[in-house]
Amino acid sequence: MKSFTAFTLTCCVTVLVGCSNPAPRHVSETETGVQLTATMPSRFDVALTWQDASSACAGHILEFATEQNGPYTPLGFFPRGHNIFTHPRLIPDTTFFYRVRPYFGPASDPAEVSLPPSLSDVDYAARYSQPEDYSWGAPETLAVKSPTELKSIRDARTSAAAAPGNLKAVIAPQTVSGVHLTWIGHDTNAEGYLIEMKAENDSDYQVCALVSPKINSFGWSLAPPQRKASFRVRAYYIGQPSNLISEKTGPESEVNYAIH
């Protein structure tokens, strides 16, 4: 690793050289296992790819900002194995900064839910469009009858035992497709829980919500045409970010993106 002084000098030189370039694109080095790269298929789209040498993470959070110091905003939570994303129709004449952060932690066993076959697609769509009592869906901490032994999710020896347990997914009776999820936390040190859903035709679980530590009740609503899904709850923590990368978009006079 370079010394601070050497690194600072290197940066100063890079700054001065870089400033003479009207449209620079730089990729920084990284000391983490995640490497992020980017290309621009057009002057207003950025295609991002990341590689992670670690086999331990559960997925990655891709984030962007338009100032180097942030705030950084997630563009998506991607399960392990998914490593591409295109950020489309971007702000003209702007530098975008990107980074990827891995997330770790054990997931519960899946719980399946499906809508009754007697519910027609037409009725499903009609009822979904109407207001319904969804107040049970707010994240809550329910009392657990018997205390459970808590383990660290950051220790390989205990991580599996720290996975959320007893996950239950039921259609809330007052709704057409509201799924009430309850579970029991077994961890001492999660940053929170990721609610992951795999709908009938999805190839993998997708993160649909983040909730705080100690939460063990949450509601999620299937949307037509979804009729069947599998859910997991993951106790998670976030690892070190990848290299930081930047791309500069073209001028507004050249914008040609279509509006859907």
Binding site: F7, G18, C19, P24, H26, P241, N243, K248
Partner: peptide, 14 residues
């Protein structure tokens, strides 16, 4: 304009 290679996580001084 951003025009500097900047590894994330290096010092605030840099």
């Amino acid at each position: 304009m951003y025009c500097k290679k900047q590894p994330y996580g290096y010092s605030l001084g840099t």
